[in-house]
Write a protein that binds this DNA or RNA. Structure first.
Length: 435
RNA sequence: GGAGGCGUGGCCGAGCGGCUUAAGGCAGCGGAUUGCUAAUCCGCGGACGUGUAAAAAGCGUCGCACAGGUUCGAAUCCUGUCGCCUCCGCCA
């Protein structure tokens, strides 16, 4: 959430942000009116409490029936006020949660993904001397993808991945762990972004894949509007996470971190669950958009001074990984209408998919400033001894259904076999995937 | 799922109806003192409201897992919820 004081002092800025992010401007007016009521009620209830405390203080030394009567009377009167305050504060809180983060200055203004801006292209779309197949045609022929049986067992948008494809995913994981826990590699990538940036390695984490509703809300990732996108366990009041980010960022909630250990970087692996409720008819064939996939996600807690550089660093790590795999890609800065509610800035990496003859999103990097940290109560102790909210960043390292698809499609041969990227061969124990 | 125990500030830990303004200690930060370091002494630590151009000071309210209740008054008593620990049961 945003700081209410910031909202009060920057109403027009927040209003513009809300409009640019396709939010409802009425939410802000509602919040401001609730904020006004809330403050008035606080002043009233505090006056009552102050008087009650005075009475209590006097009654410490001697019993006085008239004071006791006054205190009783006060309680009757102000219990009604407190009830009202409680209701207003609840609505105030909900309204505050609905206000999105303010986009960074360089974020393009636009209403949907068509207005995202390509800021960089690396490599060229792969050329073939034969007719290109998509990952489903390749995967079925190689007997490494089976979505028909998955449909019988679990429904649409699921898949069985088999054989060398499983080894390929395992190899990708090992590549990520090896790179992200290497001081040399991380240090080098960091220095190229900003010479002052830390070379702290990423700590591997296997986080829970279920999360409590209130914690989910506090991450800024569960609004009434996007609840439809989440799977919920009916009996247990738990959601299945859509990304390891959700339980990684919440790992340090209500904590005060030691400023000296920042940036605190994690690489989390988890299965991700998405209902894809609003995507009927999109990417219906194949494994590009599925209900369940595995993903390695980077999460970083940094100081406000370094967080933007940290965001750019995470994009650089993504580029390093895609570069290692020798896949053609482009870097896109998302426009205001196509970024998440908690984001101040969002950069996507789109990898070339020959089967679709298009660049498709394989990575996303989210710069949240203190928006999530405020909701989750994550602070750090500064050198002067005071505390402040940390800034959070998250970014995809490798998303499993999509990068293997890119490898299958970009590295296909005329005979339907797949050349394994050089960096994965040692982990996979094979150079070519063939029937 | 059953039985018992326990949740106090960044950490440890006392308090078990008003003497608490949450003792004391550790760590951190600021200051004083000091050839340096160390030691010692003093002060500060959260949230909200008010205050301010903005801050700060000051003032007030809250804050002892969370939510209610009893009481003139609750960290302390009562109820519910959550979490952790021990044992039993189940289980990869």
């Amino acid at each position: 959430m945003l700081d209410i004081k910031f909202i009060r002092d920057n109403v027009e800025k927040v209003r513009t942000a809300l409009k640019n992010k396709n939010g409802n401007a009425e939410n802000l007016d509602k919040l401001l009116s609730l904020d006004d009521s809330r403050r008035k009620l606080i002043i009233q209830t505090e006056a009552y409490r102050s008087r009650r405390n005075e009475i209590t203080e006097q009654l410490k030394t001697e019993r006085d029936e008239s004071l006791i009567a006054e205190s009783r009377k006060l309680k009757e009167d102000f219990s009604r006020l407190e009830l009202e305050l409680g209701e207003i504060e609840e609505q105030w809180r909900l309204a505050l949660d609905e206000i999105p983060n303010v986009p960074a200055d360089d974020v393009p203004i636009g209403s949907d993904e068509t207005e995202n801006k390509v800021i960089k292209q690396v490599g060229k779309p792969t050329k073939f001397k034969f007719e290109v197949k998509d990952h489903m045609a390749l995967g079925v022929a190689l007997d490494v993808i089976d979505s028909e049986r998955a449909a019988k067992v679990s429904g649409a948008r699921f898949g069985y991945k088999k054989g060398p494809l499983v080894l390929l995913e395992s190899a990708l994981m090992q590549l990520v762990y090896k790179a992200l826990t290497s001081k040399e590699i991380i240090g080098q990538i960091a220095r190229e972004v900003d010479p002052k940036l830390s070379d702290n390695i990423f700590i591997p984490v296997l986080p829970p894949v279920m999360i409590k509703p209130d914690i989910y809300t506090r991450t800024g990732r569960l609004s009434p509007g996007d609840a439809d996108e989440k799977y919920k366990m009916a009996k247990d009041e738990l959601y299945l996470i859509g990304s390891a980010e959700h339980t990684l960022v919440a790992m340090h909630m209500d904590e005060v971190l030691d400023g000296k250990q920042l940036p605190l970087r994690y690489i989390g692996f988890s299965t991700c669950f998405r209902r894809e409720a609003g995507s009927y008819g999109k990417d219906t064939k194949g494994m590009l958009r599925v209900h369940q996939f595995d993903k390695l996600e980077m999460e970083s807690f940094a100081t406000p001074e370094t967080s933007l550089a940290e965001h750019k660093f995470l994009v650089a790590v993504q580029e390093y990984l895609v570069g290692q795999l020798e896949l053609p890609y482009q870097v896109v800065i998302n426009c205001t209408g196509d970024m998440g509610k908690p984001n101040a800035r969002q950069v996507d990496i789109e990898t070339w998919l020959p089967g679709q003859n298009k660049y498709r999103e394989t990575h996303s990097a989210d710069y949240m400033t203190d928006y999530q940290a405020r909701g989750l109560g994550i602070k750090y102790r500064k050198v002067d001894g005071t505390t402040e909210f940390v800034h959070t960043n998250d970014a995809t390292a490798i998303a499993m259904s999509r990068i293997p698809i890119a490898i299958l499609e970009n590295n296909q041969q005329a005979d339907g076999s797949i050349v394994v990227p050089k960096v994965l061969r040692e982990f996979m124990g094979m150079d070519v995937i063939k029937k």
